[in-house]
Amino acid sequence: MFPAADRAPARPKHTDPEIVAGLTRGEGWAAADLYDRIQPYVERTLRRVLRYSGAEYEDLMQSSFERIIRVLTERSLGGACDLPTWSSAVAAHVALDALRRRVRERKLFRQEPMIESLRANETSPERTVEARMDVDRVQRIFGRMKLKHAEAVLLHDVLGHDLAEVSELTGVTVAAAQSRLVRGRKELLRRAHRERRSS
């Protein structure tokens, strides 16, 4: 699902089902193993979708882990998805929530978020600003979309999950997942057109 990692996840001491079983018993080693197993996936997902770092990023990492623990202990692993896939999906959900919150907060205070700039690879200031605006625009649209539509598009078209995974991760049938994806893409385009017109 992800491109080759530039640093491999720490080797887990236990298998995925053992980690989940340990979590349901509230064992500390399971929390540590879970962290080491999925942290790179959670980080990549949050950074891919949100592009910022700092204290808020850490808070979102923490929220992701808490939600992952909740999901893993309330639902069973298996089917098309493994621990990293679940984790990435939950982190994507947390990121979407953050985008939606950001849209709401902008309405209140007009604070622009600290988007992690693409400065490493963008030498021209104009290109940096342009790239930042492109990312900002699509984030803003995601933040305004219907959650289930945004989730389907994000999981499938941005994070690269296939439909079977999207269906399992979102708890709907494959047909419903496909329908959400199609509607989501339409909504995304519609909002992009509207935004272009208004600007």
Partner: peptide, 17 residues
């Protein structure tokens, strides 16, 4: 058009820790 829209988010470089 979707490709143009989603490309920057999907393919843009990200900084990892």
């Amino acid at each position: 058009e979707l490709e143009d829209l989603l490309g920057p988010l999907r393919d843009g470089p990200i900084a990892l820790s």
